[in-house]
């Protein structure tokens, strides 16, 4: 099993605005962890700090040992002139896997085979999202950090994605996912965190993945985000 991801006293400020305020957290690879928060709560900043894309003002947030990570940012900007097949092959080679797995990776994320050799510039939002997912999932990384992966996907696509992420988790990948769609997160995750104004307000275990739990998490989110 993969190593745990320890985040200690993480603080990030942009001028006078504190976007992350002393976050202490341990992510276990044995759980699928979800992150909830309203816009501007600090979710993307937490992801970026964990990945070293922004430097925290204090605290640490990186994995103690080098590990393969698949990250899907909230806004995907893949090269428009390339095709999904080309970009997936590159992602696989970068992660030391065989480029021959590109077709199966694209099949896995549900991108139509007729689109594989088309330029990404001609894709719809959902297709771009699926390609970005293929890029993140390629090479079976030990950790997956997904920022709004369901955004732009239709109902069928979201259902397929949840299934796929559960499968990847069973295969040993640690998953940390952030989304605004509470029902999807509750169905997928074993643990949900609520972030508000840069602070970690709630850490909840999800056991039944039921409608009652969805309602409870939605209430908690509303209560903690608008005190």
């Amino acid at each position: 099993m993969n190593q745990a991801w320890h985040i200690q006293h993480l603080t990030k400020r942009y001028q006078r605005d504190t976007v992350l305020d002393g976050i202490d957290l341990t992510l276990k690879a044995s759980q699928i962890t979800g992150l909830l928060g309203v816009n501007g709560a600090g979710k993307s900043s937490l992801f970026k700090s964990m990945l070293g894309l922004i430097s925290p003002d204090s605290g640490t947030a990186t994995l103690p040992h080098p590990s393969s990570i698949g990250y899907m940012p909230d806004l995907t900007h893949l090269p428009d002139s390339l095709t999904a097949l080309q970009i997936t092959r590159h992602a696989l080679r970068i992660k030391g896997a065989s480029a021959l797995l590109a077709e199966s990776t694209l099949e896995e994320i549900g991108l139509k085979s007729t689109a594989w050799n088309r330029r990404i510039g001609s894709y719809s939002k959902g297709m771009r999202q699926r390609t970005a997912l293929a890029f993140a999932l390629a090479g079976e990384p030990s950790w997956l950090l997904l920022d709004e992966p369901m955004s732009g996907l239709d109902a069928v696509g979201r259902k397929q994605l949840l299934k796929l992420l559960k499968l990847r988790h069973q295969q040993g990948a640690g998953i940390f996912v952030c989304s605004h769609i509470v029902p999807d997160l509750v169905r997928l995750c074993d643990r949900i965190l609520i972030l508000s104004n840069g602070k970690l307000k709630r850490d909840m275990a999800i056991q039944e993945h039921s409608m009652d739990e969805i309602s409870f998490v939605e209430d908690q989110l509303e209560k903690l985000s608008h005190p």
């Binding site: 970026k48 990945l51 894309l53 994995l63 080098p66 590990s67 393969s68 990570i69 698949g70 990250y71 940012p73 995907t76 900007h77 893949l78 090269p79 970068i94 992660k95 030391g96 970005a132 890029f135 990384p141």
Partner: peptide, 9 residues
């Protein structure tokens, strides 16, 4: 767009 690539390794 570099976010997509700037991951370990």
């Amino acid at each position: 767009s570099c976010y997509q690539f700037l991951m370990p390794p």
